[in-house]
Simulated assay, not measured.
Amino acid sequence: MLWYIRTTATKPTGETPFFLFYGAKAVLPFKIKHGSPRVLAFDEARQDAALGTDLVLGKEARRQASHRAARYQQALRRYHSRNICSWSLEVGDLILRWVLSREGLHKLSPMWEGPFRVARVSRPGAARLETEDGVPMPNAWNIQHLCMFYP
């Protein structure tokens, strides 16, 4: 499994972890055993002469992989930012709470319960709730598990 992970190109860098670490493509064990063209064409003397060139090319390949990874991360960040809608809660807002535990419920049971009133916003993205009667709920709730209730 580790061999597979180390010899498979990753999407962010476009290179294999083996290549980025050693500066050369990996020769798989079955290719050595069965004599692939790459193994048969290997010449020790020519390899020693090309070692300096390989070091320079390896550094350049690592630099390019680093740039590709940075571009990939920027694209992910843009995609994430575009699809996230930020909203905040105010004290007194009516909201519905996502039913986290589906135990004892069937597939047609409602996915949301409530409405509840926001008693206090403890930090951005979290709120303490209370029932409409004023009974406080025991824990703070993440804003991802809440949605606005419009009567």
Rank of each mutant, 00 (worst) to 15 (best):
M1G: 09
W3N: 13
Y4V: 10
Y4P: 00
T7S: 09
A9T: 12
T10A: 04
T10I: 11
K11Y: 07
K11C: 01
K11Q: 09
T13L: 02
G14Q: 03
G14D: 05
E15R: 11
E15V: 03
F19Q: 14
L20Q: 06
A24S: 12
A26Y: 06
V27W: 08
P29T: 08
F30G: 00
F30Q: 13
F30S: 06
F30M: 07
K31I: 04
K31S: 11
I32K: 12
K33T: 10
K33I: 11
H34P: 00
H34A: 06
H34D: 12
G35Y: 08
S36A: 08
P37I: 00
V39M: 06
A41V: 00
F42V: 01
D43E: 13
A45Q: 15
A45I: 11
A45E: 15
R46D: 15
Q47R: 08
Q47H: 12
D48V: 14
D48E: 15
A49I: 15
L51N: 08
L51A: 13
L51Q: 14
D54T: 05
L55C: 04
L55D: 02
G58V: 02
E60D: 08
E60L: 11
A61T: 05
R63K: 13
Q64H: 13
A65Y: 02
S66H: 13
A69L: 05
A69M: 08
A69Q: 09
R71Y: 03
R71L: 08
R71M: 08
R71Q: 10
Y72M: 03
Q73S: 03
R77A: 12
R77V: 03
R78K: 09
H80E: 14
S81Y: 00
S81K: 09
R82K: 11
N83G: 04
I84V: 15
S86Q: 07
S86C: 03
S88E: 12
S88Q: 10
L89V: 04
L89Y: 05
E90A: 10
G92A: 01
D93L: 01
D93P: 09
L94Y: 10
W98Q: 12
V99Q: 11
V99N: 10
S101P: 00
H106Q: 12
H106C: 10
K107L: 07
K107G: 05
L108V: 05
L108C: 04
L108R: 12
M111S: 13
F116Y: 15
V118R: 04
V118D: 00
A119T: 07
A119E: 11
R120Y: 14
V121C: 10
V121K: 08
S122L: 13
R123K: 15
P124R: 14
G125A: 10
G125W: 07
A126H: 13
A127F: 01
R128I: 05
L129A: 04
L129V: 10
E130I: 04
E130V: 05
T131H: 09
E132K: 15
G134Q: 06
V135C: 09
P138W: 06
N139C: 07
N139Q: 09
A140I: 11
W141P: 04
W141L: 07
N142L: 11
I143C: 03
Q144I: 06
Q144G: 03
Q144E: 06
H145I: 08
H145A: 07
H145W: 12
C147M: 15
F149Q: 03
